[in-house]
Structures are given as C-alpha cells and as structure tokens.
C-alpha cells in the first residue's frame, strides 16, 4: 500500500508540479508539495505505528459521543 501511495504522490507531484514550475508559481508549488508530503507522511506514519488524526479525534471525542448517544 505504502508503495502505491508513494507512486501516487510522485505521479501527482510530477503532473501538477511541472506546469507550476514552468509558470513560476512558487507558492502554489510549495502548498501542493506540503499537502502531498502530508499524505505520504500519514501513510508512512501509519506504517510505523503512528495513529491517524481521525483516531486522535476519536480518542478525544468518542467518550463525549458515547455519553450522549445510545
């Protein structure tokens, strides 16, 4: 799975990044790379055992939800 994500990161990075680079839109390039990096880090983090942000949300709010809802 992680390989597939890495591949997707690469493909999206190249497909979106090259035109941006050519047009000189540095800011867009940085923002896009950040998001791609986040996606890859999430996948990689999960691989080595980091919880996903949704799991964190769950740990934070689930007790409240369980108290309210059946």
């Amino acid at each position: 799975m992680i390989l597939l994500i890495a591949l997707a990161t690469l493909v999206i990075g190249l497909a979106e990044g090259i035109p941006l680079g050519k047009q000189g839109q540095r800011k867009e390039l940085v923002a896009m790379s950040c998001l791609l990096g986040m996606a890859f880090l999430l996948a990689a983090g999960f691989r080595i055992g980091f919880p996903s942000p949704i799991t964190l949300l769950e740990q934070l709010f689930e007790p409240i939800g369980k108290a309210i809802f059946k």
Partner: peptide, 18 residues
C-alpha cells in the same frame, strides 16, 4: 486546482489508515 489531487490523496490515506 493543484491542491485537489493532493487533497484527494490525503483523504484516501485517511480512509485507509483510519
């Protein structure tokens, strides 16, 4: 526009890992 595909990728990763 350049942010849509990365966003979808993050969402996909979230789906899979969460």
């Amino acid at each position: 526009q350049p942010l849509i595909y990365p966003g979808a990728l993050i969402s996909l990763v979230l789906c899979i890992v969460s």
